[in-house]
């Protein structure tokens, strides 16, 4: 455990020192405030709107940005350290590969959690202060879940980045794989599902369709952030057809945890077999 914490502390300090935490926080805060204020521009005006609309807009922002940030933060964690030449030295030290990876994950997860919290909390505070339509009580009812699930979303893509990093033989390949993963889960997956709906004339059973959504962590995230807002389901696009059973937050949160654990364990398994 001590070894894991030593590695984690180093990764976390690196993240703070390289200004990763600051950069991610500021970017998330600015985008969040911008999208909260200008998000309703399409309907004819600017300004803060209802909380439900704000959360839907922020969810779209989070789905777009957080996976990308997490992948960029962690895609080279193994392959990059191998190319840099420090991995071989580390592995001759008294630490197991699983400990090294656990330490790195704790460090990266900490960076991502802190930056997301700082970024979205400051945006939330601004909304609470300046929005005439959203009260602090209303905000506190839904916003913490949004921030918490955003952190989980970041951790999911850190775990995926580790798997990429443990599989890729070169850093350049890892970059390509990371971009492919991002495209797959942020764009391609939903397009494919839509295509399937169109091709079958909508005859796919709702039940099956709902479960297919669980295969995309960004869809789970979207589902989770819509549970408290019946009114927003019409704005939620594809996920609005999910069955009520799946909309239970506990099911969705467990699904997200699975999406962290499984890629992470696969990454450890691959790393243990990697020849350095």
């Amino acid at each position: 455990m001590r070894t894991i914490l030593i590695v984690a502390a180093k990764e976390f300090q690196d993240g703070v020192r390289n200004r990763w935490v600051a950069a991610i926080s500021i970017m998330l805060a600015l985008f969040a405030m911008g999208i909260s204020y200008f998000g309703a521009a399409a309907s004819g005006g600017v300004g803060f709107t209802s909380l439900s609309t704000t959360i839907v807009s922020l969810s779209s922002l989070a789905i777009f940005l957080i996976p990308l940030i997490a992948l960029i933060l962690a895609y080279d964690t193994i392959v990059g350290e191998e190319e840099q030449g420090t991995l071989i030295l580390l592995l001759t030290y008294p630490l197991q590969r699983s400990q090294l990876m656990a330490g790195k994950f704790v460090g990266h997860a900490g960076i991502m959690a802190l930056a997301t919290l700082l970024g979205f909390a400051s945006a939330g505070l601004m909304i609470a202060i300046f929005s005439p339509v959203v009260s602090m009580e209303e905000l506190l009812s839904a916003y913490p879940l949004f921030v918490f699930s955003s952190i989980l979303l970041g951790w999911i893509f850190i775990a995926m980045a580790y798997l990429i990093s443990a599989v890729a033989s070169e850093k350049s390949r890892a970059t390509g794989l990371a971009l492919a993963v991002w495209f797959l889960f942020v764009f391609v997956f939903d397009l494919a599902l839509l295509g399937m709906l169109v091709a079958t004339g909508g005859s796919v059973a709702d039940e099956l369709f709902s479960y297919l959504l669980l295969f995309n962590p960004t869809d789970i995230f979207r589902l989770l952030n819509l549970t408290s807002f019946e009114a927003t389901r019409v704005q939620a696009g594809l996920v609005s057809i999910a069955s009520d059973e799946l909309m239970r937050p506990v099911v969705l949160i467990i699904s997200m945890v699975f999406w962290i654990v499984i890629p992470y364990l696969l990454a450890v398994w691959r790393f243990k077999r990697r020849v350095v």
């Binding site: 030593i6 030449g85 420090t86």
Partner: peptide, 27 residues
């Protein structure tokens, strides 16, 4: 076991003292 690899490299962003501290903690 102490090992000095042929193609040695360290974390460029750390100072010499921080580098040695990291490895010392691990050992």
């Amino acid at each position: 076991i102490g090992y000095l690899p042929e193609n040695l490299s360290f974390y460029p962003q750390l100072s010499g003292r921080e580098t040695l501290r990291y490895f010392a903690r691990l050992k």
